[in-house]
Amino acid sequence: MTDHTPALQRPATRAARLSAIEQALLTRIVTSQSQLSGILADQGIAVTQATLSRDLDEIHATKTRLADGTVAYAIGVQQPDEGPATSPDAKAEQQISRVLSGLVTSVAAARNLVVVHTPSGAAQYVASVIDRQPIEGVLGTIAGDDTVMVICADDPSAKQRAQWLLDVVSKG
């Protein structure tokens, strides 16, 4: 079975580089800056060690010991006195539920899109919250005044994400 997910292409900007670094740290076990540099190079992003070091500092990436003993970079890791860390998916759900529960008025899937309605003036904020979370199958959003279009990789992803978003905002 072939993966038909469109390849994410990034412009050669600092913001795109930081986004690529965050995505790599959220989706892979990265144990060194040279490994991360290789991952970025595979995406067409050339970066010096000094720049990579500054970028990791800027996004508050830290080296953390994983359950299996491996030491790897992580972002958004809780300190020991903050309680147990949650997975990125659970974290995304908690954040979205807390922030969006009063702002989403309806959700519908239409082919590979999810149409989200909000009160007037809230769509930009809702889109921003969705864009900041690593949500599988979601490529990005477009927002107007009271409507957000969530672009998904394919039709089944849109149906799953529409139901997921309804469930998440209903919890809050």
Rank of each mutant, 00 (worst) to 15 (best):
R98I: 03
R98M: 06
R98T: 12
R98E: 09
V99R: 08
V99N: 09
L100Y: 06
L100F: 00
S101L: 08
S101D: 02
S101H: 14
S101T: 09
G102Y: 00
G102K: 08
L103A: 10
L103P: 09
L103N: 13
V104K: 04
V104Q: 03
V104T: 07
V104R: 02
V104I: 13
V104H: 02
T105E: 00
T105S: 01
T105K: 01
S106T: 13
S106M: 12
S106P: 00
S106F: 07
V107F: 10
V107E: 03
V107K: 01
V107N: 01
A108G: 10
A108E: 06
A109L: 05
A109I: 00
A109P: 02
A109D: 03
A110W: 05
A110H: 09
R111S: 11
N112S: 10
N112T: 03
N112L: 04
N112V: 00
N112D: 12
L113M: 10
L113A: 05
V115I: 15
V115G: 13
V116K: 02
V116S: 07
H117K: 13
H117P: 00
T118P: 11
P119F: 00
P119Q: 01
P119G: 06
S120D: 14
S120I: 03
G121W: 02
G121I: 00
G121F: 01
G121S: 07
G121H: 10
G121Q: 07
G121R: 08
A122M: 13
A122G: 08
A123N: 13
A123D: 11
A123W: 03
A123M: 07
Q124S: 12
Q124M: 11
Q124V: 03
Q124I: 03
Y125P: 00
Y125Q: 12
Y125R: 11
Y125M: 09
V126Q: 04
A127G: 15
S128E: 12
S128Y: 08
S128Q: 13
S128K: 11
S128I: 05
V129K: 12
V129Q: 15
V129S: 07
I130H: 05
I130K: 06
I130A: 08
I130P: 02
I130V: 14
D131N: 14
D131F: 04
D131S: 14
D131Y: 01
R132Y: 04
R132N: 15
Q133R: 15
Q133I: 13
Q133L: 15
Q133Y: 06
P134H: 13
P134L: 11
P134S: 05
P134Q: 11
I135C: 07
I135N: 08
I135R: 14
I135Y: 00
E136L: 13
E136Y: 08
G137W: 04
G137F: 09
G137E: 11
V138F: 00
V138I: 12
V138C: 11
V138W: 02
V138L: 13
L139N: 07
L139I: 11
G140C: 14
G140D: 12
T141Y: 12
I142E: 15
I142V: 15
I142S: 15
